[in-house]
């Protein structure tokens, strides 16, 4: 599913964001990327997403070599992913329903079907009554739910989360993680970057520890740990 071999990322020669990272993640795994701020978690996630290109090494995600993708192929790669960001990245001029439906529409799904899927997801997340509200009218937790709904609307096989519970209260953070865990139970592979050790330790999932751009602890795969 994901294979990183000798991956480095240099924003400046003096301090590499990632250095010689080797990491394998199997289909259906739930992995936390944990480490302090500046450890390289977000950079690693951006490389998996195709937001930045690795300076060196091989990056295989969902069978695609991300170092050699054209812009069109990169867009196709992103359509297979669901991304949840700390900043939500919702369009303030659109309703919650339209924000979620947009992610489906840009992949070629009809407007009617996109809105149907978006409405069903928002209903499922308890936001049915607020589907016509615009993001500024929603609480932080509700906005994060909309962002999660948007990440899930295309039923992605890989979900990437960058500090998805940052700035959320404990109850909302728990609800957000539950939504992602439900997607995982349906078969999605999940990679979450977080500096929160408590969150990473929750439910005994695999934790990959990063420090100064290096993997210091690759974590035990659940299947291996179970053996």
């Amino acid at each position: 599913m994901i294979r990183l071999a000798g991956v480095s990322k240099l924003y400046s020669p003096e301090s590499p964001a990632l250095a010689d990272v080797n990491l394998d993640i199997d289909r259906g795994e739930f992995v936390f990327l944990n480490g302090p701020t500046g450890a390289g978690k977000t950079t690693l996630l951006k490389i998996l997403f195709g937001g930045v290109r690795a300076s060196a090494g091989d990056v295989l995600v969902l069978g695609r070599d991300l170092r050699r993708l054209s812009s069109r192929a990169l867009a196709a790669h992103r359509r297979a992913l669901g991304l949840v960001c700390q900043e939500f990245k919702l369009l303030p001029s659109m309703t919650a329903l339209d924000n979620v439906a947009l992610a489906a529409e840009v992949t070629g799904v009809s407007a009617r079907e996109s809105r149907r899927r978006a409405a069903a997801l928002l209903e499922d997340l308890g936001l049915g009554a607020k589907r016509h509200a615009k993001p500024p009218m929603l609480s932080a937790g509700e906005r994060q739910k909309v962002a999660v709904a948007r990440a899930l609307v295309n039923d992605p096989s890989l979900i990437l989360g960058d500090e998805p519970t940052e700035n959320l209260d404990a109850a909302t953070a728990d609800a957000t993680m539950s939504l992602i865990e439900r997607a995982h139970e349906r078969g999605a592979t999940v990679v979450i970057a977080t500096h929160d050790a408590a969150l990473a330790g929750r439910s005994g999932q695999r934790v990959v520890l990063l420090e100064h751009g290096r993997v210091v602890e690759p974590g035990a795969r659940l299947r291996e740990a179970a053996l």
């Binding site: 069109r72 924000n99 992610a103 840009v106 992949t107 948007r150």
Partner: peptide, 16 residues
């Protein structure tokens, strides 16, 4: 810019 970024995140084809 924000709308474009969201569309790129969602994997909108460059032509779109």
């Amino acid at each position: 810019r924000d709308e474009i970024e969201v569309m790129e995140l969602a994997g909108a084809p460059p032509a779109l």
